[in-house]
Write a protein that binds this DNA or RNA. Structure first.
Length: 405
RNA sequence: GGGGAUGUGGCACAGCGGCAACUGCGGCGGACUGUAAAUCCGCUCCCUCUGGGUUCCCUGGUUCGAGUCCAGGCAUCCCCA
């Protein structure tokens, strides 16, 4: 294993908080592999780059010789983590949890070294807990402390409901740490309370306490709000390379260095250099953004994927060419009306370019619809069927295409 | 258990009984660009649309007419116990 200081340089890169740092140093100084814990909240089967931030940090731990325990939260899923939420999560069924956990592991495997990863289910020890044990665990916590949490506090202050069972979530998560005897637990910054709850409970049980390490929440494509599926500002780990590349090109300039640090595979020294470049104002944001997008495409889709995505991107947006891989709509399904015309708005709704006929009309009136590169005039909803032969491309905006087949 | 307040389109916030419903945010499209930022313009319930249909927590009622008034319910929050 590397000397403690060298390990720390890698471990601390991009982290938000490490509490307490002294204990981490002491644990590392033993020279033995640490048990790194990450709890998986099996509510969202589709992971995005934000989820990958802690995973990448775990991978760095693995590369340093440490071990990772991935906890599938099939027990805690009965509650749903209230962290950062402004409303109660709906409970999941056992089947949903298992299905979600499976896709989670598949996606996480792109980042983690699965040979150094242990997967366990916390339902195995949480579900057999009897009332007496539950009460004993709960007695180590108090309501005022839990209410101090920002999310609960906000919900309380904003007159939003808080269900009683949501208070138990940190208790159960803390108990996981006791069971697996974790040395360090990772999480997003909104997890800090839950991670510290683990420390409290371990001390109460007379164990060596885990260290809490949090990673910043990744900001989304808009550069302001956190990356989240519900905000629609995310890059999915399973996004096609071309989508991934395009989305990454649209991030705000200011967040490029942070994306390099939290999402790319670039060595720390190079990330430091890029960050300094941006700070000094000498950076070429466009070129750096392209480098970033290539790197991340390579990470999730294999070496060379980034370059191919960049070529496709340049063709579509620099040279305004129609991309190769676009949805098709069979010519046979095109409906002709009484006048022998094709009602274009209806066709657009049918082939998925618009969610309703009325919406398609608005798109046309707004000048955002092209057929074979020619903009359709406002109100020109009817089109001669002869112009819609196989190979014709209908386009809405800059990035939505359908080819008649 | 008692008292009070609130419930409007993705979110926020308006709405003397005549409203498809003000405004802001967000989203989409166009111009300009580096699919960045900033700025400007248009659209943003459904419908082959100078018109029609269905909406303002739910159910009834008053009225020519109700998001707006009345009654009962449901939900959330606050105060007291």
């Amino acid at each position: 294993m590397l000397p403690v200081d060298d390990q720390l340089k890698i471990i601390t890169s991009g982290t938000m908080q490490i509490v307490p740092m002294d204990e981490l140093k002491a644990k590392l100084a033993k020279g033995e592999p640490l048990n790194i814990k990450l709890g998986v909240d099996p509510t969202s089967p589709d992971l995005h780059l934000g989820h990958a931030v802690p995973l990448r940090k775990m991978r760095q731990f693995q590369d340093l010789g440490h071990r990772v325990t991935l906890i599938i939260g099939n027990g805690t899923a009965l509650i749903g983590d209230p962290s950062g939420r402004d409303s109660t999560r709906p409970p999941l069924t056992e089947e949903q949890v298992e299905a979600n956990a499976k896709t989670y592991v598949e996606q996480a495997a792109k980042v983690l070294d699965m040979d150094k990863t242990t997967i366990v289910h916390n339902g195995d020890w949480l579900k057999p807990l009897d009332l007496q044990s539950m009460l004993r665990l709960m007695s180590h916590f108090n309501v005022a402390r839990i209410l101090e949490r920002e999310d609960f506090h906000n919900r309380y202050a904003n007159q939003m409901p808080i269900a009683l069972h949501e208070f138990i979530y940190p208790v159960l998560q803390a108990y996981d740490s006791v069971v697996i005897k974790s040395d360090l637990e990772m999480g997003g910054n909104d997890q800090i309370f839950n991670l510290l709850a683990g420390r409290d409970l371990m001390r109460a049980e007379g164990m060596e306490q885990q260290v809490a390490l949090t990673m910043p929440l990744l900001v989304g494509l808009d550069g302001h709000k956190k990356m989240s599926k519900s905000y629609g500002n995310y890059v999915g780990l399973t996004d096609k390379p071309n989508d991934m590349f395009g989305k990454l090109m649209s991030i705000a300039d200011e967040v490029v260095p942070m994306y390099f640090r939290l999402c790319s595979t670039l060595p720390i020294d190079e990330v430091d250099a890029i960050e300094a470049e941006f700070k000094a104002g000498t950076a070429d944001p466009y070129a750096r953004k392209r480098q970033l997008a290539r790197n991340i495409c390579d990470l999730y889709h294999g070496e060379g994927a980034g370059q191919r995505a960049q070529d496709a991107f340049d063709a579509q947006f620099k040279r305004a060419e129609v991309p190769e891989d676009i949805p098709e709509f069979p010519a046979a399904d095109i409906q002709v009306n009484d006048q022998g015309q094709v009602y274009l708005a209806k066709l657009m709704a049918d082939c998925g370019l618009a969610s309703s006929v009325g919406e398609a009309r608005r798109f046309i009136d707004g000048g955002g619809v092209k057929v074979d590169g020619v903009t359709i005039a406002a109100k020109a909803y009817n089109v001669d069927p002869a112009t819609l032969v196989a190979g014709t491309v209908i386009q809405h905006g800059k990035r939505k295409f359908v080819r008649i087949a």
